[in-house]
């Protein structure tokens, strides 16, 4: 199956309802200014600021194109889920957003809070408010979690033109943040992620999110491999950190996470682009029916 660039472009500019494949989603977008309804929790505000705008994004790794014309718009207060099969480009997209050097953007634009960020270094993207919770958080032997968090926090303060915080004030602050993810203070004095269990590493990611207070948090398969208790803790942390002024993009394989963090939009990715978008029920359908029907509808929709 091939889709030309023009078609993708066309697709991106189509009214939202034409993308909706969620059969239980009876909503006339025309009555609501062409945007989704306050579907779940009233966080959606069509007048809120656009935080992330991705247009016709194409990206390659080692000359192989992985992202093939991706469009996405995220407004303040929204929670988006991106689902898709392995190899659909979900994780690559998250890495491109934060500027991983292995990925080359060959076309398209990424605007964050109205600013083109493609030329920004990863650390500048971070201090401007983009945060990625890694699928596989790195272990950094010899760097204590406490030092790492303080250096990162101070890098953010410095970027905002604020004074660096001293060790003692930082300790007070971080103790507070530990509650968000129900982490024991002893984790602060261990090397970053070294010897942490899978769940502890993921909680440590959310702790960093709690500390750095990003405007846009991207969670790359944060739920993979978590037991239910850890999942609830992580999800609880994310919910606690959601405000009308920030936004979350959840990348996941599984619907289960979305029982705890209810998304406003669910996007399905395939072959390097978003092929359909729906509400939270779309995730449930994907869980029960798999992806094949979505891919099929997309194919017929395109060929029709």
């Amino acid at each position: 199956m091939g889709i030309s660039a023009e078609m993708v472009h066309c697709f991106a500019n189509a009214p939202y309802e034409s993308l909706v494949t969620d059969k239980n989603f009876n909503f006339n977008a025309q009555e609501h200014g062409g945007r989704y309804p306050p579907y779940r929790r009233g966080m959606i505000n069509e007048n809120s600021d656009i935080i992330l705008s991705v247009r016709d994004l194409r990206a390659s790794v080692d000359g192989t194109e992985i992202i093939k014309g991706l469009n996405l718009e995220v407004r303040a207060g929204e929670i988006h889920a991106i689902m898709g099969l392995n190899g659909s480009g979900k994780s690559t997209f998250s890495k491109v957003l934060v500027g991983h050097p292995d990925y080359e953007v060959t076309a398209g634009e990424i605007h964050f809070k109205g600013q083109n960020i493609l030329e920004l270094e990863p650390h500048d993207r971070a201090t401007s408010g983009i945060f990625l919770a890694f699928q596989y958080p790195l272990e950094i032997p010899g760097v204590s979690n406490r030092d790492f968090l303080r250096v990162a926090f101070n890098a953010h303060r410095k970027a905002r033109g604020e004074e660096e915080i001293d060790v003692f004030d930082f300790d007070d602050l971080i103790e507070e943040k530990l509650d968000v993810v129900k982490m024991d203070a002893s984790f602060l004095d261990r090397s970053v992620n070294e010897g942490f269990s899978g769940g502890e590493k993921k909680r440590n990611e959310i702790l960093q999110m709690a500390l750095l207070e990003p405007v846009l948090a991207i969670l790359d398969e944060t739920d993979s491999g978590l037991d239910i208790d850890a999942l609830k803790t992580v999800a609880g942390g994310v919910n606690q950190l959601s405000t009308p002024d920030n936004a979350v993009v959840l990348i996941t394989h599984y619907q289960r996470l979305l029982d705890y963090i209810v998304p406003d939009y669910v996007h399905v990715m395939a072959d390097g682009r978003i092929i359909t978008t729906g509400g939270k029920d779309l995730a449930k359908q994907l869980e029960s029916r798999g992806y094949e029907w979505v891919l099929e509808e997309f194919r017929t929709g395109v060929t029709a």
Partner: peptide
């Protein structure tokens, strides 16, 4: 890169490591 993604510049990340 992990350190950079937390706002720490590449030279500072190297020094830290």
């Amino acid at each position: 890169f992990y350190l950079q993604s937390r706002g720490i510049s590449a030279p500072q990340a190297q020094r830290l490591l």
